[in-house]
Design a protein around this nucleic acid. Structure first.
Length: 269
DNA sequence: ATCCAGTAAT
DNA sequence: ATTACTGGAT
């Protein structure tokens, strides 16, 4: 099947059913897109919305954030998770302020050098903020390509060369169409071609889908379990961070100690 | 219990 | 190529 046959149906579907999100509005600049993409790393849209609004309202440019403290950045991060992202976004703002005249760089290679900006985020900002033709390969696009073209339910944990080649092959040749295809494929994966309960009855390419044609085979290799949450170091850290966020002044040790009873575990956190 | 718009260190 | 990192919803 030629890759191009999926473009029209997916792009038309997106034109009709895309969610209206603040970072997709006309007039957003590179900074808005960068902030949103970093917040969206491993974090669902619903939880990002409120924090995104307060961030761009308080720091409308990289230089504005750079002139504030990293501590404020973490405070404003709220409970989004992975608070190191707030530190890296602040560090990225400092780099942009110092080395790029306060303007978010436009090329993939320059973006990739910023703290906290990996392959996905660099490609996404280059495409969505600056309309460049880049392969945007997030978990949603990976799942769509895996199902439609390869007939496999879920992609592997890591991206392999074959997968990148397929994504490059499927990407439309001209930049504007490539950008629209990328955002449309991401949206399709996020709201229709979901990991757990795909809504194939409303999918614009269900008739072309290899996975569907094969009868939805599942792979047994992806059923390993994860560590539970209660009582772990992870829960301990989360509780301590919430406590520290709540205060403007350094906290007495007694108060911190009271938040978690297991001493050694508290020290680790 | 498992999912969700990844990055960076190893 | 693997793995730790986060928190809330389902």
């Amino acid at each position: 099947m030629p890759a191009s046959v999926v473009h029209e149906p997916v792009i038309s579907w997106y034109a009709e059913s895309a969610r209206s999100l603040p970072w997709r509005q006309p007039g957003v600049d590179g900074w808005h897109v960068l902030v949103s993409e970093v917040m969206l790393q491993q974090t669902p849209v619903s939880r990002v919305l409120a924090v995104y609004s307060s961030w761009v309202a308080r720091w409308p440019s990289p230089s504005a954030l750079a002139s504030d403290s990293a501590g404020q950045a973490v405070r404003m991060w709220g409970a989004l998770g992975y608070p190191r992202r707030a530190l890296r976004l602040h560090a990225a703002a400092v780099v942009i302020d110092k080395l790029h005249h306060g303007e978010v760089p436009k090329t993939y290679d320059e973006l990739r050098t910023l703290p906290g900006v990996g392959d996905y985020t660099a490609a996404a900002v280059a495409a969505f903020a600056f309309q460049q033709r880049t392969v945007v390969l997030d978990t949603n696009v990976r799942r769509v390509l895996s199902r439609v073209f390869t007939g496999v339910a879920l992609p592997r944990v890591g991206i392999v060369a074959d997968e990148r080649r397929l994504a490059e092959q499927v990407l439309p040749d001209d930049a504007p169409t490539a950008v629209t295809w990328s955002v449309a494929a991401m949206e399709l994966g996020a709201v229709v071609c979901t990991a757990r309960a795909p809504r194939c009855e409303v999918c614009p390419v269900s008739g072309l889908c290899a996975w569907r044609r094969l009868g939805y085979p599942t792979d047994s290799s992806r059923t390993a379990r994860r560590q539970s949450y209660v009582g772990t170091d992870r829960q301990c850290r989360g509780r301590l961070l919430a406590l520290l966020r709540s205060s403007d002044v350094p906290l007495p040790w007694q108060l911190v100690d009271a938040a978690w009873s297991d001493g050694p575990q508290r020290q680790r956190a």
